[in-house]
Amino acid sequence: MRCHYPKTLSLILLFFLGAVLGTSLASNEDEKVMPPSEVPNLPVIDDRHLDKMPPREPVGLDLKKIGWSYDCMECHRMIDKKWERGFKLVEHDDIDFQHGNNRYCFNCHHQENRDAFVDYDGSEIPSNDILTLCAKCHGTKNRDWEAGVHGRLNGYWDLSKGPQTKLGCIQCHDPHHPSFKPIKPLSPPTYPKRATGNPSGQGH
């Protein structure tokens, strides 16, 4: 004997299909564009969720943050101009001076005017022109920075849509200790519980 169930089932299916198609057609007919939500298009993309703090910002430049004017000559006009390496620093003992072969203060700082930096010919480089100062030695890095590939760019890659910020040398590097200090890495992914071996990747 032939089973009668499939026929019944197909009937049910047909019924459902019909119902679904019917409603879908109906919904297509009176398709209305719903009014845009209260915040339809954020004009400026909010980046509060991203930590864009320049690396040196939280640790360096403390004096500036508390309002120090950086008028170095306030003290230095009273201090002997000459200073040799080996003379123990008193006021600036927080400086951890590790700049490779560049071991002398006056390679960068101007002997007469401590509010400025010094160029190769002894002329002054204004204190806000850090880029020129660093470019004295780091020519290739300066070239890359000018091209926008050394250091970090933030904001808009498409300048027709918005501004771009470029971090300067000392926003990332401590000039007295330019190499980055090691940092604690953020949390890793979890190693699968049921996986064999170990996460060091040495062998299976």
């Binding site: 993309i45 991203l50 926008g148 760019l153 933030n154 808009y156 849509k161 971090l167 990332c172």
Partner: peptide, 30 residues
């Protein structure tokens, strides 16, 4: 929308460079 990707915005060493490869003056082409 013209902005940099999130991973690039936070990189503390500036190791990431993003851009339009069809623009001959872009950083990526450099």
């Amino acid at each position: 929308a013209g902005k940099y990707p999130a991973c690039m915005e936070v990189c503390p060493t500036g190791a990431r460079v993003f851009g339009n490869i069809l623009d001959p003056d872009s950083e990526i082409n450099y």
